[in-house]
Each structure stands twice: as C-alpha cells, then as structure tokens.
Design a protein around this nucleic acid. Structure first.
Length: 191
DNA sequence: AAAGAGATGGTCT
DNA sequence: GACCATCTCTTTT
C-alpha cells in the first residue's frame, strides 16, 4: 500500500546502522540537482559502525568522517579511489559514528537525466553501484552533510508508504578487506 | 562468463 | 608512501 511521498521520518534513522539498513530498502532517494529531479528506489545497502574495522569511523573522528559522527539523517559523502563518489545515510545517536552506504537504486523518475549523466548506458546499469548511483543522481561532495529529512534539501529520502521487503537478502559486504565476514549487506529480492 | 588491470586523488601513517 | 566502502575496458576461458 502506497501513498503520497513525504520526507522520511528522522526517527526511523535513530537506531544502529545494521538495524536501520534493511529499513531503508524500498525508500526513495531523491535528488534535485541542476534543476533536474531524479528519484530511485533503494534496493541495496550496507551498514558500517565505529566498532567495525571496515568503517571509515573505526580510527576515530577525522576531517573526512565528521558527518558520520554527526546527527542522524544527514548525508556522508566521500571520494572513492579518487574517481567516484559514495553516499551514506548517517544513523544512530549523534556521536556514534555509524552510517548506511547506499549501494544501488532502481530509477523511478528522471531516467533520461540519469542516462545523460551516465553516458547513455543501458537503463539497468544506470544506478546499480555506489559510484554509479551518485553519478546518476548528481551527488558529490557539494552535498556533504545535506539533511536527508528536509523536504527542501537537494538530496533527500522520501517515503511513499512502500514497506521494506519482508525477507531481504543478507550477506557479507563488498569491496572491503577487513570485516569481510560481517553480514551487513542487505538487498531487496529481485522483482 | 570470468578474470585482470588501469585510472586517479584524498586521507592517513 | 600505502591504502582504498569503485568502475570500465580488455583479455582470456
């Protein structure tokens, strides 16, 4: 059962990232960049925590990870491999250092804009990776710290009433060298 | 279908 | 100076 989309309730993000992560599946990631609105349904995420050797917050607060130690509901963006941007939703109480990496969305609006930004690739490959997702939605370091729960934010999360999948696919995270066994990757079942 | 390598720059030791 | 929470293209089964 779905309804009109409104910005995500910040209370949803108040828990630990590994508990919040599966709840973000099915929510809408929306960007309004350069006057263009693009929206995608979140279908793959990963949780990161301060007590987790794979996390950017594991070594403690630094200039780069400051947003992850900030209040929940804000965006933590970083530059990956000097080339791609990756976007995270900060969770848990302020000061904890936890976030959920947005790994993939299924575009539901602004496909033409995303296609142009991505170099006219096949629609299925427009936003099926953390770097691709940011490119498709136009998310970069300019959006560091953006409030995802603010309806006027250039990057936000909307809830149209679609419930998270009852049985998300769960497994180890991808592309990391430490904490490889922790099953904190969550995917919506294909369909 | 799978595996390998290069691109490219910020961050931290 | 090493290490990346990646992507794409090329080469090899």
């Amino acid at each position: 059962m779905t309804g009109p989309a409104r910005t995500l309730d910040r209370a949803v993000l108040a828990g630990p990232s590994d508990e919040v992560a599966p709840l973000l599946l099915g929510k809408l990631l929306v960007s309004v960049v350069g006057g263009e609105r693009v929206a995608g349904r979140i279908v793959e995420v990963e949780a990161y925590r301060e007590d987790d050797p794979a996390s950017h917050t594991y070594p403690g607060p630094t200039a780069r990870n400051a947003a992850m130690f900030g209040p929940p509901g804000h965006l933590y963006v970083y530059l990956s491999y000097g080339i791609h941007h990756c976007a995270n939703v900060v969770t848990a109480p302020e000061g904890a250092g936890q976030a959920v990496l947005l790994r993939a969305v299924r575009l539901v609006e602004g496909c033409d804009v995303a296609r142009a930004r991505r170099g006219g690739r096949d629609d299925r490959e427009l936003a099926d990776g953390p770097g691709k997702l940011c490119q498709a939605l136009g998310i970069d370091l300019a959006h560091y710290g953006a409030d995802l729960c603010d309806p006027s934010s250039p990057v936000r999360i909307e809830d149209d009433g679609t419930p998270p999948p009852a049985e998300p696919l769960v497994g180890p995270r991808i592309g990391i060298s430490r904490g490889v066994e922790t099953p904190w990757r969550f995917r919506a079942p294909p369909g």
